[in-house]
């Protein structure tokens, strides 16, 4: 293999490359949007031109590490990635079955002991009692836990507000900022404790705006920085926008991203998420909302018509939208009505 590598490299280097293509053709190739003939021509040139290959690789955004791989760009490419993904699903299912099976097998002794020790007095109302007795004590405690938690939840909104500062924040190399839910149980506990202390709610977008280091002014800097802002406080997924304005979601703290189709792939400028609610805004007041973590989207009909530059929701009901015209609109009923600030 090494010998072949050396031989092939030597001869590939000797190829004549011809005229360099326009930057837009290179960009179109990188975005997989060239038609067959143009794509072949570009590949022909790229295979011979070291410089253009270097430009191609330099110009590829780091953010969409997995985006190009996962995004279904065409029917041909989709069939290529679908199979490994399908295999992964089956593997996950098989692993789940094995885990559940092993838990049942190891705890079988406990189940049968409980059944034997209390089966005698339960003759009259047998079916109901057996069902209760089959539940091991640990499971019973777990079942009670949600009820206790529900009773303790007297401030549902505060949970959303205070979870935010404890969410993990990551800057990637292209400047996108991704917020994810606390990774460890310890962090989750901290954020729940923080519910009683609202002083910790430092605005996340200020930290992002601080990166825009100069020039046209804080407002432009803040607006442009927030274009790629995504946040998620209670959902395990993180949301952001891809380089071409598509909504994307990550389940692994931003390591890989999946494109989420919204409204036929129109480009968006801003995104915000809180719990299962996700808001995405684009040109001319285009605003889409999902209340179920991106499974379904509805087009909101806001009164403003300017390009949306920034969205910030503090909870499912209260949010603020800034437009490129400098207008700031707020809602307190989940986007049903909007007031100009």
């Amino acid at each position: 293999m090494d010998a072949v590598k050396k031989l092939v490299s030597g001869r590939l280097k000797a190829q004549a490359a011809g005229t360099h293509p326009d930057p837009e053709l290179l960009a179109a190739f990188a975005e997989n949007s060239l038609s067959g003939r143009d794509r072949d021509g570009m590949l022909n040139h790229l295979s011979a031109c070291t410089d253009c290959r270097e430009v191609l690789y330099l110009a590829m955004p780091d953010t969409s590490e997995a985006q190009g791989v996962l995004a279904p760009s065409s029917a041909a490419s989709s069939s290529r990635w679908r199979q490994p993904r399908l295999a992964l699903r089956w593997a996950t299912l098989a692993a789940s079955v094995v885990i559940v099976g092993s838990v049942l097998v190891t705890n079988r002794g406990i189940f049968t002991q409980h059944l034997r020790s209390s089966a005698l007095p339960a003759k009259d109302n047998a079916p109901q009692q057996v069902a209760e007795l089959k539940t091991p004590p640990e499971v019973g405690q777990i079942a009670e836990a949600p009820a206790i938690e529900a009773a303790a939840k007297v401030r549902p909104q505060a949970k959303h507000m205070t979870a935010k500062p404890y969410a993990s924040m990551q800057f990637d190399q292209s400047g996108q900022v991704h917020f994810g839910a606390p990774s460890s149980a310890n962090e989750t506990k901290q954020s729940e404790q923080a519910a009683a202390t609202p002083t910790t709610t430092a605005p996340a977008d200020e930290a992002v705006a601080a990166r825009g280091s100069n020039a046209v002014g804080a407002a432009v800097s803040k607006a442009s920085s927030s274009l790629s802002l995504s946040s998620s406080s209670t959902s395990p997924s993180s949301w952001s926008l891809s380089a071409d304005g598509q909504v994307q979601r990550s389940f692994d703290s931003g390591k890989t991203w999946q494109i989420v189709p919204v409204a036929g792939g129109i480009p968006f400028h801003a995104i915000s998420s809180i719990g299962d609610d996700v808001w995405a805004g684009g040109a001319a007041g285009t605003l889409y909302h999902s209340a179920d973590s991106g499974r379904s989207w509805t087009k909101a009909e806001p009164v403003f018509t300017g390009d949306i530059a920034h969205i910030e929701f503090s909870d499912a009901q209260n949010g603020v939208v800034s437009t490129a015209d400098g207008e700031v609109w707020s809602t307190s009923d989940g986007g049903q009505s909007w007031q100009l600030k």
């Binding site: 590939l12 070291t50 590829m60 969409s64 190009g68 791989v69 995004a71 760009s73 290529r80």
Partner: peptide, 24 residues
């Protein structure tokens, strides 16, 4: 040829080449 040039000549990673061609 593009794949070979990228891998052998430029010593790009498999991930980089995959991204440039939108495949796995």
């Amino acid at each position: 040829r593009f794949v070979l040039a990228s891998y052998f000549l430029d010593e790009r990673t498999l991930a980089q080449i995959a991204r440039s061609l939108s495949v796995h």
